[in-house]
Simulated scan of single mutants.
Amino acid sequence: MAFTMEFTSTVHGVTYALTASPTSLELLGAAENGDIVAEGTIKLPPGGATEAAGLVRQALATIAIFEGKARPRVANSHARWTPDDDASLREDWLAQPSSTPATTSIRELAKSRGRSPAAIRARLGRIGCDPDVAGRLLTPETAELLGRDAIAGASVSQQSK
């Protein structure tokens, strides 16, 4: 199956055009005055597009780091959650006033733990906390519906507070 995809983007007066096909990647960058400032072609072997795309992505991410334009990686990104981490997060979540917007509480908890807000939000549901309302646990019905169990030692009567 043959296909060709074209992508364009303009940054700082340079328009980049990337054309991707199963056998090649072609890049052309032209300044506003028409000068070619970037160009290149990568020829791909049959079935090699996925591997090549990964290598190009990795190379470009490294260049972005050197240029100081990469998003900083969260300190504990991909670190395993320990039972102590779960207990601490649960305790801190339940100490939040329900009047505080959940997004604000999640951002603060993420920053203090070196985690992303998405990681905190996902973990709250796993430990029996309602990620949509600060300071609240999931109801037993909601926890059951989501297939989540509260952390060990928390009884259903504690969850329904």
Rank of each mutant, 00 (worst) to 15 (best):
R123I: 06
W93S: 04
G34E: 11
R107V: 08
A38L: 14
V14R: 15
R57N: 14
I106L: 01
I120K: 01
G153A: 03
R136M: 09
D35Y: 12
A134S: 14
L94D: 04
A61L: 09
M1A: 14
G125Q: 04
A95Q: 10
G135H: 07
L55F: 09
E39N: 10
K161F: 02
K161V: 03
R107E: 08
G128K: 03
L146I: 02
A150P: 00
N76W: 00
R115E: 07
T139R: 09
E91H: 05
L89F: 04
G34D: 11
E26P: 00
R121F: 02
L145I: 01
A110L: 08
H12Q: 15
L124A: 01
L25R: 12
V156N: 05
A75D: 11
A49Q: 11
M1W: 04
T62Y: 07
T103M: 02
S160F: 05
L60G: 09
I120V: 15
S116E: 06
I127V: 12
G54L: 06
E67L: 09
M1N: 10
A79G: 02
L145M: 06
D130G: 00
L109Y: 01
I42M: 10
P72S: 08
E144Q: 09
V133T: 13
K161M: 03
D84M: 04
I42C: 07
R115Y: 04
L25D: 02
G48S: 13
G40Q: 10
A119T: 14
I42S: 03
T104S: 07
A17W: 05
R148C: 06
D130K: 01
M5D: 13
L25I: 15
V56D: 07
V56N: 06
R136E: 09
G147Q: 06
R90Q: 09
V74I: 13
E141M: 04
S88R: 09
A143D: 00
W81T: 10
S98F: 01
